[in-house]
Computed example of a mutant assay.
Amino acid sequence: MTHDPALEAHEHAEHAEHAAHEHDPFISRVSITIAILAVLAAGVGSLETIEAGGAITSASEAVLKQDQATDSWNEYQADSLKKHLYGIAADTKGPKAEDYAKTAKEQVAKQAEIKKGAQEKEAERDRLMAASGLHEHRHHWLTGAATMLEIGIAICTVAIITRRRHFWLGSIALAVVGLALFGVAFLT
């Protein structure tokens, strides 16, 4: 069974509207509270899903950048071997010694470019991993916020059934905790 915050919010709003038709002021207030909490839970749940996707996407892109950096470092090592081989060939003072020495110097310049590219890819990998961590951090806090709001909705339902004010106030307290967790997700 999939979790659809928008559908759940709509269902809770319908239940709240139905209960409001009883013309009891307490039931009306609790019903309105349910509707508000349902909308908040749907919004927080959607943001939670977005942050989870962002964490996964950033981590995947970081792995790709690491693979690219590894390929660059492998190329750097291969060119290092070529440079040394051409250097040894140039030291033999054979007929192509000057060509070998020139090629060895070209390898040094090529290696500098490859090294720079590999380091840039590693820096991008680090940036992406930090972004993934931030998304994951937000996701955890948003999960808590959505949970508090959804529990608040359930307790509002108990308040309607029992007609007990302390359940309604408890649900409002849970909503405040949920909103605080929402704030922490984006402030820390």
Rank of each mutant, 00 (worst) to 15 (best):
T2Y: 04
D4W: 00
A6D: 15
A6R: 05
E8R: 09
A9T: 06
H10K: 15
H10G: 10
H10W: 08
E11H: 09
A16D: 08
A16T: 02
A19H: 14
H21D: 12
H23I: 12
P25N: 08
F26A: 06
F26L: 05
S28C: 10
R29H: 15
R29S: 07
R29C: 04
V30D: 04
S31T: 02
I32Y: 06
T33R: 05
T33D: 08
L37R: 01
V39E: 14
V39I: 11
L40D: 07
A41P: 03
V44R: 04
G45C: 01
L47E: 14
T49W: 09
I50P: 03
I50F: 08
E51W: 02
E51F: 05
A52Y: 00
A52N: 12
G54L: 00
I56E: 15
I56N: 10
T57M: 05
S60K: 09
E61W: 03
E61C: 01
E61I: 05
V63Y: 01
L64D: 10
Q66V: 06
A69R: 07
A69W: 12
T70V: 06
D71C: 00
N74W: 11
Q77C: 08
Q77G: 07
L81M: 09
L81T: 14
K82P: 04
Y86R: 06
Y86E: 11
G87M: 07
G87L: 05
G87D: 11
G87W: 02
A89M: 11
D91M: 03
T92P: 01
G94F: 04
P95E: 07
P95W: 02
D99N: 14
Y100L: 07
Y100C: 10
A101N: 06
T103N: 10
T103I: 15
A104E: 14
A104P: 12
E106K: 13
Q107K: 11
Q107C: 11
Q107T: 07
K110S: 09
A112D: 15
E113Y: 00
E120R: 05
K121V: 06
E122A: 10
A123L: 12
E124T: 13
R127M: 09
R127P: 04
A130Q: 12
A131P: 01
G133V: 00
G133K: 01
H135N: 09
E136R: 03
H137K: 09
H139N: 14
H140Y: 06
W141E: 15
G144I: 05
M148C: 13
I151C: 04
I153T: 06
A154G: 13
I155P: 07
I155C: 00
C156L: 02
T157N: 12
T157C: 11
V158Q: 05
V158I: 13
I160F: 08
I161W: 09
T162E: 15
T162K: 12
T162C: 03
R163V: 03
R164Y: 07
R165F: 08
H166C: 03
H166S: 14
F167R: 04
F167E: 14
F167N: 13
F167V: 05
W168H: 15
L169M: 14
I172G: 02
V176Q: 02
G178A: 04
A180R: 05
F182C: 12
V184G: 08
F186D: 05
F186W: 14
T188K: 11
T188S: 11
T188H: 06
